[in-house]
Design a protein around this nucleic acid. Structure first.
Length: 671
DNA sequence: GTAGTTACTTAGTACATTTTCC
DNA sequence: GGAAAATGTACTAAGTAACTAC
């Protein structure tokens, strides 16, 4: 196994392989600098660079500067005028060439300028080094004891390992939960020797505190490590990343998202999960399926081991997979969001959402009509779709009962999840939603709906028990089939993407004040972002330090208020003074005091805005929508329009993920 | 229709690292 | 310079949705 510092012969870097990373066998020219960008005199040249594989060319048909792809996904080309400006920009500062960073910048592969593979084919060549396994278990030192029923007990290695998983969680509330303890104990006993099994019959008699203290001391020691030691660990991680963190896919070196196999431990699902506490077992090479090219260097399994299977399936994007033992689901190793394969898909997602924009009015009219249908199924479908559209609810697939936490989405809503109020707080036809959604995050909302929707809901709830399905004639499959008929590629989740992106665009238009300075504009951006996060119900647990940092801010505000009061008093007395004295000097004093008051008022306002901003953000997570729902081109265009550096909106990782958008969107981009 | 399987996106949390503040 | 706060990253769970076989 590839535990740090335990390099075995088979894991040694073999020069030919590594060399293939630096210059893979079939590598074509990396985006070569100025050469490719349409230079001013090359206006008519198509901007899409074809893939070099001729056999794929036939799938594409060029129409002016729009390329129609086999999957009808339109690749809209960049505005050539903008390109011109860009290539000019690139050439002008020839004199002040900052060599290094520029060179690196130019080496970034612009996959979005190339043609895409036909539907279904994900790659033509794939080579990687396989996964990194979890480090093997290191038994506890002799002096760390486990006690059963008050007596010291030496555990077998296997039993001890599982015991340490529990010991490490001792401070968590869930080790006190009945289900967690029951599941853990059941699985732990499976790892025990028959002797241990006969002795250890009651979890409550187990004393893990010594073990727990030992781990706490360990992590404390880790924090106290010297700089050199920390540096060493860092370098080791970098080495691992360099060796296993990349693959070669179609002539390009691409970053892998999760090249480390998940280590064993105790499963903790989110919310009230029936399987919490179960043992997540150690993954062995024998569990692993490797996916790569036939003609690539196939990663060798660790010595003495075999892979479960090696396959060569270029219809999928994963490099490694295994079946996990808690739910029996498949886990994958895939590429980073900055990779071509993820980026293209992401881009395509937003293009689908933009296509929805064009027909959303028609679809809305349609489902409003369907509220009157004589078919129950159609009515349910129409009301569900209304919720998905208006409230950005998730589709709501069915789940196997008892296998996961009890959470729902739109199609799986039950009668108990909504309350109907013919009138509430002066509003008519209010629906009160209260249910647990994905990750057991509560969705609570009171929404006035149209009368027809309300009446339909009353109808759907007639003669039903609270635990009955609200939409008993509907599921996600039916709904998505219908959506497919309305627009190619339309599914329930497209509405979330569409509504999130369109909301951002509209909010940015509304909130951005051209006269504001950059920080104020960024605040507006965050507010627009927040509107989306609220729409999508992206919540977070308030940070542990939230109350404290809020209090700090409040005391700053209080101090500023006092300062303001003082300044005002001084201004007042200065004014009185000036009235009496009527000389230039005292007039000047009044002016300067006035300015001081103004300055402090401004500072106070800023602090108060900051406080509001933070308070509003207490339970709202902006990251998820930014990363998954907001067409990055909207943000890029906004930045360009107002001269905001993109770094203020996207950090490094995000800029890598959205490189395509940053490169192609101009300030006039419209979602 | 439905149940099972597979592949892929979306999600929040814990921990690590960087920045800010005093 | 060190603590605290803010920000970034790794991790992996939990969704969506397509497909297959009956």
């Amino acid at each position: 196994y590839s535990k740090p510092g335990r390099k075995t012969s088979s894991l040694k870097l073999e020069p030919p392989f590594f060399a293939s990373f630096c210059s893979p066998p079939r590598i074509k020219d990396e985006p070569d600098d100025d050469g490719f960008y349409a230079s001013p005199k090359e206006d008519s040249k198509p901007l899409k660079r074809p893939r070099e594989d001729d056999d794929f060319k036939t799938f594409f048909e060029e129409k002016g500067n729009i390329v129609a792809c086999s999957d009808r996904f339109l690749l809209i080309l960049q505005d050539s005028k903008a390109k011109k400006a860009k290539s000019k920009d690139k050439k002008v500062p020839e004199a002040d060439k900052r060599k290094k960073p520029k060179k690196e910048e130019e080496q970034k592969w612009k996959w979005w300028e190339e043609e895409r593979y036909p539907e279904g084919i994900k790659w033509k060549f794939l080579e990687h080094k396989g996964p990194v396994f979890a480090p093997p278990y290191e038994p506890l030192p002799e002096n760390v004891k486990f006690y059963y029923d008050g007596k010291v007990m030496k555990l077998s290695t296997k039993a001890e390992e599982v015991a340490t998983f529990f010991a490490k969680m001792l401070d968590h509330e869930y080790t006190t939960k009945e289900i967690f303890r029951k599941n853990f104990f059941k699985d732990w006993r499976k790892e025990m020797t028959s002797e241990e099994k006969s002795t250890i019959t009651n979890l409550s008699k187990c004393d893990f505190t010594h073990m727990s203290q030992y781990f706490k001391a360990q992590s404390e020691a880790r924090k106290q490590m010297s700089k050199e030691e920390k540096q060493k660990i860092k370098e080791e991680n970098e080495r691992l990343l360099k060796e296993y963190g990349y693959c070669v896919m179609d002539n390009h070196k691409e970053r892998i998202a999760n090249f480390k196999i998940e280590p064993p431990g105790l499963f903790r699902g989110r919310g009230n999960h029936p399987k919490m506490g179960m043992l997540k077992r150690r993954i062995m090479p024998e569990d692993i399926i490797i996916n790569c090219s036939k003609d690539s260097k196939i990663p060798p399994p660790p010595p003495g081991h075999k892979w479960k299977e090696v396959r060569h399936d270029n219809k999928v994007t994963w490099l490694v997979s295994w079946t996990e033992n808690i739910q029996g689901s498949i886990k994958y190793i895939m590429l980073n969001p900055s990779s071509r394969i993820k980026g293209e898909k992401d881009w395509q997602k937003y293009e689908t959402a933009r296509r929805l924009k064009k027909c959303v009015d028609k679809i809305r009219n349609q489902y409003r009509e369907d509220w009157k249908s004589k078919e129950m199924k159609v009515r349910q479908r129409a009301v569900a779709l209304y919720f998905i559209d208006k409230l950005a609810l998730r589709a709501g697939n069915e789940k196997e009962e008892g296998e996961t936490a009890d959470t729902v989405g739109c199609c799986s809503l039950r009668v108990e999840h909504i309350k109907l109020h013919p009138e509430l707080d002066g509003q008519e036809y209010v629906v009160e939603f209260d249910f647990l959604g994905k990750d057991s995050i509560r969705y609570y909302n009171k929404v006035p709906v149209e009368k027809r929707v309300f009446k339909n809901l009353q109808l759907f709830m007639e003669n039903k028990q609270p635990e009955d399905d609200l939409f008993d004639r509907l599921n996600t499959s039916i709904l998505n089939k219908h959506l497919q008929d309305l627009m190619e590629g339309l599914t329930a989740k497209v509405f979330r993407t569409y509504n999130a992106s369109i909301t951002l665009q509209q909010q940015l238009k509304e909130l951005t004040n051209p006269d504001d300075n950059i920080p104020a504009k960024i605040l507006s951006y965050n507010r627009a972002n927040r509107a989306v996060a609220i729409l999508c119900n992206h919540q977070r647990a308030p940070p542990k330090t939230f109350e404290k940092s809020m209090m700090n801010l409040q005391s700053k505000i209080d101090a500023k208020k006092e300062q303001l009061a003082d300044a005002r008093r001084e201004l007042k007395s200065a004014k009185a003074d000036a009235k009496v004295r009527r000389d230039e000097k005292s007039k000047k004093t009044v002016e300067s005091k006035k300015k001081a008051v103004q300055r402090i008022e401004e500072q106070l306002m800023k602090l108060e805005v900051q406080a509001t901003d933070r308070e509003e953000n207490k339970q709202i997570a902006l990251g998820t929508s930014k990363l998954n729902y907001l067409d990055p081109r909207i943000s890029v265009a906004w930045c360009k329009k107002w001269g905001i550096p993109i770094e203020k909106i996207y950090n490094k990782t995000q800029r890598e993920k959205f490189a395509w958008a940053i490169d192609m969107a101009e300030e006039d981009y419209e979602f």
